[in-house]
């Protein structure tokens, strides 16, 4: 069965979802990520979903679960690149992914993870994007 590749970049894991995922693939990614976080001791997980045309409740739940599990294992998850139409639809569907941190693109997401690593602890920020405050010039 197909697997979605997980790249390791320093203390972070990077996943780019590029296919229209069926449910088994999403479930496999959840498992693989959990294992890799535990095996590598990664402190941050970045999931790029900018290629995804939809996020339904199954994929949404997968993202939520990955965020919750990785937090328990000492890593923070940031989901980047969600398209406007996908975000609007997800909200209408009733999924707000409150436990998941988000960033506009991979660059911003990596900067966010970089700041978590500098701060040394990832759990004491008050807002999802608050950690983004110092990422240089950005634009």
């Amino acid at each position: 069965m197909d697997r979605i590749p997980i790249l390791k970049l320093g203390d972070a894991l990077l996943v780019t979802i590029q296919v229209d995922m069926h449910d088994r693939l999403a479930a496999a990614l959840e498992e693989d990520l959990t294992e890799r976080i535990a095996a590598t001791g990664a402190k941050g997980v970045l999931i790029d979903i900018s290629s995804l045309g939809i996020v339904d409740s199954f994929i949404g739940r997968m993202l939520d679960t990955v965020a919750a599990v990785s937090r328990m294992l000492g890593a923070d998850t940031v989901v980047v690149g969600m398209r406007p139409a996908v975000a609007i639809t997800l909200v209408e569907l009733g999924l707000e992914l409150k436990g998941v941190r988000t960033a506009l693109n991979v660059e911003r997401g990596m900067a966010l993870i970089g700041r978590w690593l500098e701060d040394g602890d990832g759990d004491e920020r008050d807002g999802p994007a608050a950690g983004d405050a110092n990422d240089g010039d950005g634009g």
Binding site: V80, G81, M82, R83, P84, V86, A87, I88, L90, V91, E92, E96, L97, T102, A103, L104, N105, R108, G109, G127, P128, A129
Partner: peptide, 13 residues
């Protein structure tokens, strides 16, 4: 509220 929630999902405040 929905607009705000959607923006947050995209990574903006």
């Amino acid at each position: 509220l929905k607009t705000v929630a959607a923006a947050r999902l995209m990574g903006a405040d």
